[in-house]
Design a protein around this nucleic acid. Structure first.
Lengths: 344, 344
DNA sequence: GAGATCAATGCAATCGATTTCAAAATCTTC
DNA sequence: GAAGATTTTGAAATCGATTGCATTGATCTC
């Protein structure tokens, strides 16, 4: 009733049970070190008082927050939101909370100090390939170990722990699929490239084309940014071309959807006039029209394994000094958006 | 280099600048209370040492964590993920972190004590209409004030702060749109109902039908759960019916998409054979085929306003004792999935 | 039965930042 | 130049939980 009454502290419980605070603490963390009688007294004192531990005090004392921080380029995006859901559930079962941050400008130092270095989080799940990991390293060399697992679509620095899928190989298999259907004129909508590194899926695309002795026409490669709008922009680009490819491999499903739907407004039908395949297998992919052929990424698995890896490191269950490196497989999902090219 | 070196504390900075820790603290929080000379010394000592505040210690002392907790039924879902993104950005600009939790069983007490009562979070953003707010109240009466803003699609307890859209009215306008096109046989795929309360959009649907003297056939109301699969299930149901409605209003876009795409597999084309409208206007809605007619929910706005309201309450900028109640408007977005019924 | 061993518990220091109170330094004013 | 007003600073208590060390009491052994 008295809504101004403070939260009970461990001292209150101790008084209630006629023991010291130390004993209460031990009952809570190492029950076997306490006699059965007192343990019972303390336990019931806990429920009577409605005691809940003060995490701030605990974090201060233990220098650990039981919280992990995730950095994602776009939470609203269907790919990352599924990953995040897996992260949250996995972390919860391991007793960890999840702090979420978006992309806060170019300077990782800013939010790193806001969150991480300040004892708010014990480790970092990095899903944003555009943060400069060298900057992160620089900061961590500054004095603080920074447990970190990266899981993004670009090849991460080999020195950091990572959970990835083999984009190069997946892109090759995508091209292989189109090739098997009989396509020889294949275009691409790429993901964004980092300053120095070209987008992995683009590299895989070029490699696959080269190995099959197919010509790569630069005007058949549209530089996208994974947003649906850039699929729409690509449609305008390809529609205006004097000669068009018979198939386009988009670096993610959203761009593929933007492309197909914009093509339709230009009178170009998929798959009748052009085959399109995506990447990721987001949830609507199989209910889109036409149902999307795509390379499935194991999104839940990525989130789960990345989280488990990080928690293992945080809890010291990870013996080796070598960085962890998990490579997951993508799976080709053939649906309706790709067919053999029309005889021209 | 020495990666075992500890984070510098406020004491280290104080030593560096030849002042007391109290002064450093003042430079950081109330700079005008410190002379210009010492302020300069302290500021450079801060940068030299690379000091960052220890949030655990600060939280313990201030009894506030500058963190809010969000409870969502499904982060992976395109509606909530957009809302969450807005929450995270808004919170960040106000200097708050965001802890995310999914739905952890029926008992809010469990995670409430895990997160909230334990000083990990200062307030709660509740997007899950299926948590029993009376249980939450019960706990808060237990001694702790629990700042809370609810923002879900069901009518919240009038005693709690809320940011909602008027679902009743929105559902009516949806029916009105179909009515205006000439539809008289209208079906519905509903969202889930809470124990005692029927789903709001369903109520709005019935009300609108009643007011227009249209018959409500119970076999034309399919009980859904907002998941795409239940749209698919609805398609099977409606396809098997001897007589079908000419238009179906789905309580969200995902069910509408599941419905349309499954209908197509049954040879029923939208909008040729049946008009379908959705609710929410999720991002793919305008690039779906057919582009989806829907009631747009201001998702970013809901997330932003809910967050701002909560932060205002937490910071005490909120004078009145009355619960805050913000009602936002939905907007009818007419696209291709609805047309006049075919002459039979 | 006395000394040794071990389990159970308490005392008090500690984690790092904030803030009250008081002292010290500076500035006014006549 | 002295008394008073004002600004600047520091000492120390505090937030709540954990844990090394010391103490008590019980059990064991010969």
């Amino acid at each position: 009733m008295d809504s101004s009454r403070k939260q009970p502290t461990i001292q209150d419980v101790a008084r209630h049970a006629n023991v010291s605070a130390a004993t209460v603490s031990r009952v809570l963390s190492t029950p076997d070190r306490v006699s059965e009688a007192t343990r019972a007294r303390v336990t019931s004192a806990v429920t009577e008082t409605g005691y809940t531990i003060n995490q701030a005090a605990r974090s201060l004392r233990l220098q650990r927050a039981r919280t992990i921080l995730t950095a994602m380029p776009g939470i609203g995006n269907p790919y990352y939101s599924t990953v995040l859901e897996a992260v949250v559930t996995t972390a919860a079962t391991r007793g960890y909370g999840v702090l979420v941050t978006g992309r806060l400008g170019d300077d990782p130092a800013r939010w790193l100090s806001d969150y991480f270095l300040s004892n708010r989080a014990d480790g970092l799940l990095l899903f944003d390939g555009f943060l400069d990991t060298r900057k992160l390293h620089a900061i961590s060399a500054d004095g603080s170990a920074m447990p970190l697992v990266a899981a993004y679509d670009e090849l991460p620095d080999p020195q950091i722990n990572s959970v990835i899928t083999d984009n190069l190989q997946a892109a090759e298999r995508a091209v292989q699929h189109l090739f098997d259907l009989g396509h020889r004129k294949i275009g691409h909508i790429s993901g964004p490239s980092r300053n120095t590194f070209p987008n992995e899926r683009l590299v895989g695309f070029r490699k696959a084309m080269f190995e099959r002795r197919l010509p790569v026409r630069e005007d058949w490669i549209f530089p996208g940014n994974y947003a649906m709008q850039s699929g729409e922009a690509a449609a305008a680009h390809f529609a205006a071309l004097p000669e068009r490819p018979t198939a386009i491999f988009a670096a993610n499903d959203e761009m593929a959807i933007g492309l197909i739907s914009s093509f339709r407004r230009h009178g170009i039908e998929c798959p009748r006039d052009i085959s399109v395949m995506g990447f990721d297998d987001i949830t609507i992919a199989h209910n889109y029209f036409p149902a999307l052929t795509t390379m499935r990424q194991p999104r839940e698995e990525i989130g789960r394994i990345a989280t488990e890896t990080l928690v293992n490191i945080l809890e010291g269950n990870h013996e080796s000094r070598e960085p962890v490196r998990v490579v997951l497989q993508s799976e080709l999902i053939v649906r309706e958006s790709t067919t053999s090219p029309a005889r021209a």
